[in-house]
Design a protein around this nucleic acid. Structure first.
Length: 895
RNA sequence: GGGCGGUUAGCUCAGUUGGUUAGAGCGUUGCGUUGACAUCGCAAAGGUCGUAGGUUCGAGUCCUAUACCACCCA
């Protein structure tokens, strides 16, 4: 006999349950392709995890995606499919390198000082030390992934995949080396891709100044710029070809302020005549648009910037000066020289690094790029052909739009932590060697004086290969053959370009297949006021704290229920608390059911008739099972969870458990039958709920199973008890049966009567434990009331002895009346019943009924009656009939 | 400039083939410790579903326009 504590204590269970699951091997897929007896024809369900940063800290986004993926995985596992969730972590080049650099800084040294080799060693040490933290937190979240297949993007196997991919692209001519205009991050001292630059609108100034003609005429061309520090790099001034104001200047030369260099005035349609002065200074070395204009007009390209964002020797007196100081200094010098016209406030778009927020400098540099158009065309076509479905659907358009306007991808990074670019240069003959294996000598001249390219690849390069590199690609492993392509890619919409797009392109390019058939995109987590969580706003909620306080299940349920795919979600502690309460509610439902089972002493006979409450709860159970199945198939996990919640709390606990108490008290067959049904419904609901709240359901289900088995008289699942709920069979759809409709309708009438009586009790402030004398009158429903009077007695607090049911009205003097449809209910309230108040209440009810009658009569007289489906019309007719009989009884009562 | 999402109760949000009295949690008010649960129960107050049109027998849900907020792309 199990005696459960009054409250669910998650701390007692979570860790042990997870260990048990893992130890029993439930996280590993059945039908393993590496084992004998593998059947390749059985389709597996496969998810690869979006690998968290190896040294990253857990934030609410993690529990969010872990829960969503775990729900899918547990659902498919319970359906009996071979199910695999591959875990792993990402080396996260920049993020990790920065952390270690910070550490070095605190030790009073730097990566430059320790040198590349030692630095890399330090990062690996760091990874070993902290890399396990994030995965242990994933475990704590209940992630049922196969840890024996855990991968890290810098593993040997994955590094091999990276090399293979790079070399293949190179051989196909899809990888090429700059120089090109790139985004330079001065703080990180590396190039970054377009995606890593964010543009923020900021208050700046528009500086107006004179470009004086070189011919000595004293005439000048007025020019406006937001970045005076780039003036030393100007190699032209452009005006619109049809701009009459400036046509006379085209072809002439003007003098660069301070430096006095002569540059040409050109005509180009890119220039917007309305902006600024209509004349645009051209700095081909430091602006992407100017770069293009410069190319069109064969303007010289001058680099004026050092890698640390100070100006270089090409800027004369400003050499060595920081870019922002130079901006001021140049302007001051020009002012002195009388070249300044004016300055005005201007809202400018400032390019900032996605990481760290420093201002990015566009400059020309030699970097490695991937040519994207052919890759993107294939990916876009696959999506158009429906080979990949997005959930929610709207992201299809976002994806395609990006693919159709794609730019080449700068993949080299001047970092030390990452996949080294597999390119070597021969010092002797200057041959470039791109190779899968480290070359020992130059294939052209035989020299051994080889230098490997110092750069590493953008982190996202390896991420793009993740769905197949985790299975051993380029080797044709059993895992790769069986588990690839994967089923669903679940990730945040913020990395649709960074990651999803690249996986699709890479998958098609390297494996000839789309890497997954469905992309499920979740929204972002915000605080309870809808603001992004950030340390500076001090509104960060630590998931670990939430788990400590409320349990993992509560956190999981919160992050999935009450949200919908692709939409951002505001999370507050209150919600988690409410869901902790839900876990406790489930627990207590379980305690009740188990104690009921334990008291059963004789088996239920099949012949015993079900009560109305039995039929109703079973009908609702079937409805809920079906609805949850529908919702799961459509990735509507939030709504599915909500329906189980509502069923358990509002139907099962609030009504059926209460109704079952008398049935259990009857003993014998009735009690056994009731306990069986309680167990059956709870078993099914724990199964439906398990993907959401795996711990409390597993714990409770274990006790339920034990109670049923120990007792042996009651419920047993169709296919017997599984070892653990995690591998329990998922409840399948049950066809609708005719009796369900009436059962639900009838019980709802009971509920309405009970609510009316409770309402009245509340109005009269009758103590909850005081039984009321009641008298029911109904011509058509007398039998119904008689049959279900126990329900009414128990749920509404009536006095059983004095309760009477009549078909015609007896003397009711001194009793308070209630009307529900054509059932009149007379109750003995307080001795000194207030007739006047009673009358008012009944009048109010009558008025309400009459207004409903008027509304429905009008509706039914309208074209609605002819045009709407018969079923819908009939439902309205029934309502009208109900109100009519109520009104009639009320009028009688009021005299 | 283009695109996308949102606007529903005091607050935070659900509401997916349009079905006629719009739901939850939290908060608020009143009552309450009936052996599953005070991490609870019963009852109540609270919404012309951003605005204006349209389609339809019927619109929170579909269409058009518009306002505001947020995000993405340029």
């Amino acid at each position: 006999m199990t005696e459960l504590p009054k409250a669910y204590d998650f701390k007692e269970y979570e860790e042990g349950i997870y260990q048990e699951w893992e130890q029993k091997g439930y996280f590993k897929p059945t039908n393993d392709p590496n084992s004998s007896g593998h059947d390749p024809s059985v389709e597996p369900f496969v998810i690869v995890i979006p690998p968290p940063n190896v040294t990253g800290a857990l934030h609410l986004g993690h529990p969010m995606f872990v829960t969503t993926e775990d729900i899918m995985v547990r659902y498919h596992r319970m359906k009996g499919e071979p199910t695999l969730w591959v875990p792993g972590t990402d080396h996260a080049g920049t993020a990790t390198q920065l952390q270690v650099e910070k550490k070095l800084q605190s030790e009073g040294t730097s990566r430059e000082e320790v040198g590349r080799e030692a630095f890399e060693k330090r990062v690996w040490e760091w990874k070993e030390k902290y890399g396990g933290e994030i995965t242990s937190q994933l475990r704590r979240l209940g992630a049922s992934c196969d840890w024996s297949r855990e991968r890290f993007t810098l593993d040997d196997g994955l590094s091999k995949a990276v090399r293979e991919a790079f070399v293949q692209l190179y051989e196909k001519g899809l990888v090429y080396q700059g120089p090109r205009m790139i985004n330079w991050s001065p703080g990180l001292q590396t190039a970054v891709s377009d995606l890593e630059v964010e543009y923020s609108e900021e208050e700046g100034k528009l500086y107006y100044f004179k470009y004086v003609l070189a011919d000595g005429s004293g005439e000048y061309l007025p020019v406006a710029t937001t970045r005076p520090e780039t003036i030393p790099g100007d190699t032209g001034v452009a005006v619109h070809p049809e701009d009459e104001r400036y046509s006379k200047f085209v072809g002439k030369e003007v003098l660069v302020p301070v430096l006095g260099r002569k540059i040409r005035v050109v005509a180009d349609e890119y220039v917007t005549r309305e902006f600024g002065t209509g004349a645009l200074k051209i700095t081909p070395g430091h602006d992407p648009h100017d770069y293009e204009i410069g190319e069109r007009h064969h303007l010289e390209l001058i680099n004026i910037m050092n890698k640390n964002a100070t100006l270089n020797e090409n800027t004369g007196p400003y050499a060595g000066m920081d870019r922002f100081k130079a901006r001021k200094q140049i302007w001051a010098d020009m002012q002195e020289a009388g070249l300044v016209l004016k300055e005005e406030p201007y809202l400018m778009k400032v390019p900032r690094s996605q990481r760290g927020g420093e201002i990015i400098e566009p400059l020309v540099s030699s970097q490695w790029f991937i040519k994207m158009d052919s890759l993107a065309a294939k990916a876009a076509e696959a999506v158009r052909q429906g080979e990949i479905t997005f959930v929610p659907e709207r992201f299809t358009k976002v994806f395609l739009n990006w693919m159709e306007n794609i730019q080449d991808w700068c993949i080299s990074r001047q970092l030390w932590w990452g996949h080294r670019i597999p390119v070597w240069y021969c010092d002797e003959c200057h041959e470039t060697i791109v190779s899968r294996e480290d070359p020992s000598s130059c294939p052209k001249c035989g020299s051994t004086a080889l230098r490997q390219d110092p750069d590493v690849l953008d982190t996202w390069f390896s991420s793009g290969l993740w769905p197949f590199s985790v299975f051993g690609w380029p080797e044709n492993t059993p895992d790769f053959q069986y588990f690839y392509p994967t089923s669903v890619m679940e990730t945040g919409y913020d990395i649709i370009f960074f990651w999803v797009a690249r996986m699709v392109m890479d998958g098609l390019e390297f494996t000839g297949k789309v890497p997954f058939h469905t992309v499920y995109l979740h929204g972002m987590i915000r605080d309870d006021k809808g603001q992004k969580m950030s340390k500076t706003k001090n509104n960060v909620i630590d998931p670990l704290v939430l788990m400590d306080e409320y349990g993992t299940d509560a956190l999981r349920f919160t992050l999935v229920v009450g949200s919908s795919p692709g939409n951002d979600q505001n999370v507050g502690v209150k919600k988690v608390e409410a869901n902790r309460n839900f876990a406790n509610k489930v627990w207590n439902i379980g305690r009740f059911v188990i104690s009921a089972i334990n008291r059963i002493e004789e088996p239920a006979l099949e012949s015993i008739q079900w009560t109305l409450a039995d039929s109703w709860i079973w009908a609702r159970t079937r409805q809920t099972v079906n609805a949850v199945n529908d919702l799961f198939e459509n990735y509507q996990f939030g709504e599915a969870g909500r329906q189980v919640y509502e069923f358990l709390w509002n139907d099962f606990a609030d009504w059926y458990l209460e109704a079952s108490k008398r049935q259990l008290a009857e003993g014998a067959n009735r009690a056994a039958r009731t306990a069986t049904l309680l167990a059956n419904v709870l078993d099914l609901m724990l199964r439906l709920l398990h993907p959401f709240t795996p711990f409390v359901t597993e714990a409770l289900w274990g006790y339920l199973k034990a109670a049923c088995q120990e007792n042996g008289l009651v419920y047993k699942p169709i296919e017997g008890w599984e070892e653990h709920l995690i591998v329990g069979r998922w409840p399948e759809r049950m066809p609708h049966e005719a009796w369900e409709t009436d059962a639900i309708k009838d019980f709802e009438l009971v509920q309405e009567i009970v609510r009316s009586i409770r309402n009245l009790r509340s109005e009269y402030k009758i103590e909850p434990n005081k039984s009321l004398e009641a008298l029911f009158v109904s011509e058509s429903r007398a039998d119904f009331v008689e049959k279900n009077k126990h329900l009414l007695v128990d749920l509404a607090g009536l006095d059983e002895q004095s309760l009477t049911v009549h078909t015609t009205k007896p003397e009711t003097e001194g009793l308070t009346a209630l009307v529900v449809e054509d059932i009149e209910i007379f109750l003995s309230m307080t001795a000194d019943g207030d007739d006047q108040a009673d009358r008012e209440r009944l009048e109010k009810e009558l008025a309400e009924a009459e207004s409903q009658i008027a509304r429905l009569e009008k509706l039914l007289a309208s074209p609605f009656a002819q045009k709407a489906p018969a079923q819908v019309v009939e439902a309205e007719r029934e309502k009208l009939a109900g109100y009519k009989s109520s009104a009639e009884k009320l009028r009688e009562r009021l005299g």
